[in-house]
Simulated assay, not measured.
Amino acid sequence: MHSRQPLSCFVIACNESDRIEDCLKSIAGWADQLIVLDSGSQDNTVEIARKYTDEVYQTDWPGYGPQRNRALTYCKHDWVLNIDADERLNPAVKAEIDSLLAQQNPNFNMVKIPWQTYLFGKPLNHGRYSTPQGKLFLKTGVQFKNSQVHETLQMPEERIHVLKSPIAHHSWRNYQHVQEKHLKYAYLLAEEKYKKGKRSSIAFACVRFFTDFIQQYIFRLGFLDGKRGFFMALILGQYAYHKYAALAAITMESKVKEDKVV
């Protein structure tokens, strides 16, 4: 039995058979409750997950925010750890969490864990993808933002503690996966922005490529990661460009439709 407060952990997944086993191995037997919420995997993700927990549920895909909120409903303990299939917990992270949750009256309700994100086989130590992420939280009164992507956790009176040990983050399988993932996210974000009344132009998209590149490479010290840091800055510049180019394209398409109606 753990001397700390009990902990629920959930993983949302779809077609993650090449990565989810390492994730679940790092959690199973340590978390008091392990939940996997699958959204229609066509590979053997579900079969792998069932090796590590009896709580494997299959659903449709409503978007990242709604899916994480669904997962929250299965969590029976007050403290919840939200881990993705491309993340791994090492013993140092788990020891820090055990120590924190052993406190009688903790003065925090959110624990952020530094990311150690890998790009093409080696970690990035600077920039956007090293920022601590809010992974562990007290679930009372919280919910994820109801968005398709980049869903943030909304909670009253957030009190944060940041761990020292990082969580391993293997976000991209290869360069093709980087581009496919970011292009998908960019279009989803563009659709959300358009629905909220925001508009863009191709000129602004081009400006955002350069500003986001400079922010990552210079101001967030990406240059200290060498070739990988330069690659990551270019990728994030492309990501920003695609978000606003997609918004510009949606804007133009909608204008054509409006003109036809008139």
Rank of each mutant, 00 (worst) to 15 (best):
K76R: 14
V207C: 11
A92V: 00
E258F: 11
N146I: 07
T45K: 02
H150K: 14
Q154Y: 10
I235S: 12
L136Y: 03
V56N: 07
F120K: 11
F209A: 05
Y57L: 15
L247Q: 01
Q216H: 08
K112N: 00
V178S: 14
R220A: 09
F230L: 15
N109A: 05
F10N: 07
I20S: 08
P166D: 01
Q104D: 12
P123Q: 08
Y74F: 13
G222Q: 07
C14N: 09
R128L: 14
E16M: 10
A102E: 10
K164R: 03
W30V: 12
Q5M: 08
G127C: 10
A13K: 01
F10M: 05
A28N: 11
I167Q: 01
I97N: 03
E180I: 10
R199N: 11
C9E: 04
H177R: 06
K25G: 06
P106R: 03
S200R: 10
Y64L: 15
D86V: 05
E47K: 14
P156S: 14
R228D: 09
S41L: 02
I218R: 06
P106C: 07
C23F: 05
V111Q: 00
S39R: 06
R19Q: 12
D78G: 09
D98T: 06
I83D: 02
E151F: 11
A102S: 15
A186M: 05
Q179T: 15
T59N: 12
G134I: 02
K257T: 10
K145P: 02
D38Y: 09
D43V: 05
K139C: 01
K76P: 00
V142M: 08
S8E: 03
R19E: 12
D18M: 08
D212I: 05
D32L: 10
Q116P: 00
K164V: 00
L101I: 08
I83P: 03
S17K: 12
H242F: 11
K243D: 04
L138E: 04
W115D: 05
W172K: 07
S41T: 02
Q104G: 07
K51Q: 15
Q104P: 03
Q133N: 11
E158M: 13
Q143I: 03
R4N: 03
H170Q: 11
R208F: 01
D32C: 11
L100A: 00
H169Y: 07
K76H: 09
I214G: 00
A245C: 07
K227F: 06
D212C: 12
E191D: 09
I35H: 07
D38K: 09
V93M: 05
E16Q: 14
F137I: 00
D225A: 06
K227S: 07
V162H: 02
I35A: 04
L89R: 01
R208G: 01
S39Y: 07
A71Y: 03
L188G: 01
W30R: 13
I202N: 12
E258M: 14
K51I: 13
Y118M: 01
A85L: 01
K198T: 06
S99C: 13
H177D: 15
E253A: 15
T211R: 11
K198G: 06
G222E: 04
N146S: 11
C14P: 00
E157C: 13
E87L: 00
Y74W: 04
L100V: 03
G134T: 01
Y241D: 00
D60I: 09
A49K: 04
I160P: 02
V142T: 14
F213V: 08
N15R: 13
V149T: 14
I250V: 10
N146D: 13
T45W: 04
K145I: 02
